[in-house]
Design a protein around this nucleic acid. Structure first.
Lengths: 159, 159
DNA sequence: GAAACTCCATTGAGCCTTCAACTATTCCGG
DNA sequence: CCGGAATAGTTGAAGGCTCAATGGAGTTTC
């Protein structure tokens, strides 16, 4: 087996483990959250983002950008969250195309009720499995990859 | 800020980066593969698994287990792949409940056509962004997490 | 050997996401 | 100011996933 092949097979194995681990972990977190709080992880993230914004309010576009997701997806998500009374859409006075998403009191309550269970899952399935050093590595790696992918999306609007 | 808080906020940041990075990366790989080869990453993994099996054949259950996914999901996936003529179901002679999934010649061809593009994406968006040391860490971490989550699923059939 | 259990695999409903229009507004060059 | 281009956001169809329910086939027990 020459050097090229060794490289490839090593990376292939890493990729395989990475795909399995991330799928299993994301599924588990999503499932736990779904069972305990009846919200998908993706919607929890919307609530989390809004809860940190000033006035618990964000323009739809900004919210989508913070979540690194598409406008379309956010639009659907907010529609669902609005049905539950957790978020409200408010028209933007200065730009009639625009809309604000506002976290309601109920939305904040739902978010706060869901958080402890999620953190417990994360602790159990992620951080309890890693040494402090490994958690540090994971953070570094995640930040590197996220930065690259964000950069790449800006530059490559192959859409 | 006391020690507890520091711990929590550090981990929260790590989690955030991790979720963003994995979502962006999985989306990008899936999208690239979809554009270049018109298959979702999940279906590619099915083909990959079959292509490595002896006779390119695997029991549905075993295939699901290798992929760490549910039987239901695999059943749907194989149904789609069968429509395309890439996989064929074959009844198991010894156990009439059972079914084999067999990779067809067309399926193998589609898999081989898709692989280079995927590896290129993986190289560009994952390994080119990491040092050799970091790739090693990622592998270790992934394997740890995957092992834990597999163990956990066996032990905790909270279903 | 029949009832009770378990196991393999499939099915359909419901939800989430993506993709590709589409509407409505705002911006900008001339 | 007008017409074209860019921007904000929504919508509906299509596809994939999960969940719960089902059917059919082996297995166990007495």
């Amino acid at each position: 087996m020459d050097t090229q092949d060794r490289w490839a097979s090593e990376h292939e194995q890493t990729l395989r483990s990475f795909l399995i681990a991330t799928h299993l972990l994301l599924d588990r977190l999503d499932r736990d959250l779904q069972r305990q709080a009846e919200i998908p992880l993706a919607y929890y993230q919307v609530l989390a983002c809004l809860s940190e914004a000033s006035q618990c309010t964000l323009r739809m576009s900004d919210l989508a950008a913070h979540l690194h997701g598409s406008r379309s997806r956010l639009s659907h998500a907010v529609a669902r969250l609005e049905e539950r009374g957790w978020v409200q859409r408010v028209a933007c006075p200065t730009d009639k195309r625009g809309a604000y998403a506002v976290l309601t009191a109920q939305g904040r309550a739902a978010f706060q009720a869901a958080a402890p269970g999620l953190f417990e899952s994360v602790r159990q399935h992620l951080f309890d499995q890693l040494s402090a050093e490994q958690a540090g590595h994971l953070r570094t790696i995640s930040e590197l990859l996220a930065a690259h992918l964000c950069r790449h999306e800006e530059l490559d609007p192959a859409d």
